[in-house]
């Protein structure tokens, strides 16, 4: 199991388009990937879940990946957030 805490730094937060990009990217991985925000936990491969997180600029998110490619998944997540989803 790999964990990573990430602060949302793109201006609009995880709204529809970044949420879509995140889900599309993570759906390629075998691992189970969860996102935790406060007490709220969602499936990172569910766009409905990710949007329901309402992760605005500055939100602190905890990603948990579990599976054969958990390491690669976490790296991909870091890259996405570092690139600020290309905004």
């Amino acid at each position: 199991m790999k964990e990573k805490i990430i602060v949302v730094l793109n201006k609009t937060g995880l709204h529809a388009r970044p949420a879509a990009t995140l889900v599309q990217t993570l759906s390629k991985y075998q691992s189970i990937i969860k996102i935790l925000k406060d007490d709220f936990e969602v499936d990172a491969k569910s766009v409905i879940g990710v949007m329901a997180l309402a992760a605005a600029y500055g939100s602190k998110l905890k990603f948990i990946a579990y599976g054969s490619d958990e390491y690669e998944a976490i790296v991909a997540i870091e890259n996405l957030f570092d690139s600020k989803f290309g905004e």
Binding site: A16, R17, A19, A20, V23, Q24, D43, K45, S46, V47, I48, G49
Partner: peptide, 11 residues
């Protein structure tokens, strides 16, 4: 794309 992802949402 968002619409398509919602449509295929596993949940």
């Amino acid at each position: 794309t968002v619409h398509l992802l919602i449509l295929d949402d596993p949940a």
